[in-house]
C-alpha cells in the first residue's frame, strides 16, 4: 500500500516537473518552433507521468483504461495542433522555418 503511494507520488511529482519545464520553455524560448518543441514534447511526457501516477494510485483497471484514453487523446491533439501551428507560422511568413545550420567549427578534413 505504502509502496504504491510512494510510486504514485514520485510519478506525479516528476510529471509536474515536466509540465513546469514545458511551460518555462514556452515562456522563455525565442521563436514559434522551439516553443512548440518545448510545449508538446515535455507536456506529453508530463501528462503520461501524471496519468500513470493516477492509475497506480487508483489501482482500478477501469480508471487505468480511461486514463490511457485521456493520454492518447491528449497526445493526438497536441501532435495535430503543433503541426498546424508550425505550418501556419511558416505559410504566413511570421517565422522562418528552422534550417539545420552548418556548424561553424566543422572540422572538415
Amino acid at each position: 500500500m505504502i509502496l504504491t503511494e510512494v510510486m504514485a507520488s514520485l510519478l506525479l511529482i516528476s510529471g509536474c516537473f515536466f509540465y513546469i519545464a514545458g511551460t518555462v520553455g514556452l515562456l522563455r524560448f525565442p521563436d514559434v518552433f522551439s516553443r512548440l518543441h518545448a510545449l508538446t514534447k515535455a507536456d506529453n511526457l508530463g501528462l503520461f507521468l501524471i496519468c500513470t501516477g493516477l492509475a497506480v494510485n487508483s489501482g482500478s483497471p477501469r480508471i487505468t483504461g480511461l486514463l490511457l484514453v485521456v493520454w492518447i487523446l491528449g497526445l493526438l491533439a497536441a501532435t495535430v495542433s503543433c503541426h498546424l501551428i508550425a505550418r501556419r507560422a511558416i505559410r504566413s511568413g511570421q517565422a522562418e522555418p528552422p534550417v539545420a545550420e552548418p556548424r561553424a567549427a566543422d572540422p572538415t578534413p
Binding site: 487523446l73 493526438l76 491533439a77 501532435t79 495535430v80 503541426h83 498546424l84 505550418r87
Partner: peptide
C-alpha cells in the same frame, strides 16, 4: 485552410 493536411483527417476520423 487545413482540409488537405493528412493529419487533420486522421484526427477527425477519431475525434
Amino acid at each position: 485552410a487545413h482540409a488537405e493536411v493528412p493529419l487533420v483527417g486522421a484526427l477527425l476520423s477519431l475525434v
